[in-house]
């Protein structure tokens, strides 16, 4: 019997930024790329314990579980407690695609009075409160990479990216946070 393999997060121990915009690595979470037609939304919502959002740029959260609208048939589900999301979705017994992306993605958290300005150092996405209120989310670009930006609070953002891009995303956000904090 082999020894149990240990997890190693891509951004373990990273932190940076400025007093006005802290940049830290998010902890591990389970994530699911969920694809389904509109006819399956109700059943999947029930199975997952939250209402899958159907409006662009919106999300739904329940405890530490979040469903982010990424496209008309696409959601990113994040469970910070590590629940088996694919198993939950399977209970719905409706046509869908559930693919585990827990290890594909990682997240950088940006928090503080200048958090939005820090992100705006590299992302063209409009984070103004009128069009990107708390709970808003969008897939977009950050410098040369693709990210999902999720506004979790007035001054809190979660930036999801693929793991090999994480040091780049972190570096950009940390530089942006330093500049935003001047």
């Amino acid at each position: 019997m082999a020894e149990q393999a240990l997890r190693k997060a891509p951004l373990g121990g990273f932190h940076g930024g400025s007093a006005a915009a802290h940049v830290t690595a998010a902890g591990p979470a389970s994530r699911l790329s969920l694809r389904a037609g509109t006819d399956a939304v109700t059943a999947l919502s029930k199975a997952l314990g939250l209402d899958l959002p159907t409006k662009p740029k919106t999300s739904a959260s329940s405890d530490a579980r979040h469903a982010l609208w990424l496209g008309p048939d696409e959601w990113l589900l994040i469970d910070e407690n590590g629940a088996d999301l694919a198993a939950l979705a399977a209970k719905a017994d409706v046509l869908h695609s559930a693919v585990d992306v827990s290890h594909r993605n990682t997240a950088v958290l940006v928090a503080g009075t200048k958090a939005a300005a820090a992100i705006a150092s590299a992302s063209p996405h409009d984070l103004s409160p009128s069009v990107f209120p708390v709970g808003a989310c969008a897939r977009t670009v950050l410098g040369k990479i693709e990210v999902v930006i999720f506004r979790t609070g007035e001054q809190d953002y979660r930036v999801e990216c693929w793991r090999s891009f994480a040091p780049y995303a972190f570096g950009l956000l940390a530089e942006g946070a330093e500049d935003a904090g001047l």
């Binding site: 662009p56 740029k57 496209g71 008309p72 063209p124 996405h125 069009v131 969008a138 977009t140 670009v141």
Partner: peptide, 11 residues
């Protein structure tokens, strides 16, 4: 037309 808003060409 799916996101129902204008976005930068970069996307």
């Amino acid at each position: 037309p799916y996101c129902e808003e204008e976005r930068s060409e970069l996307e």
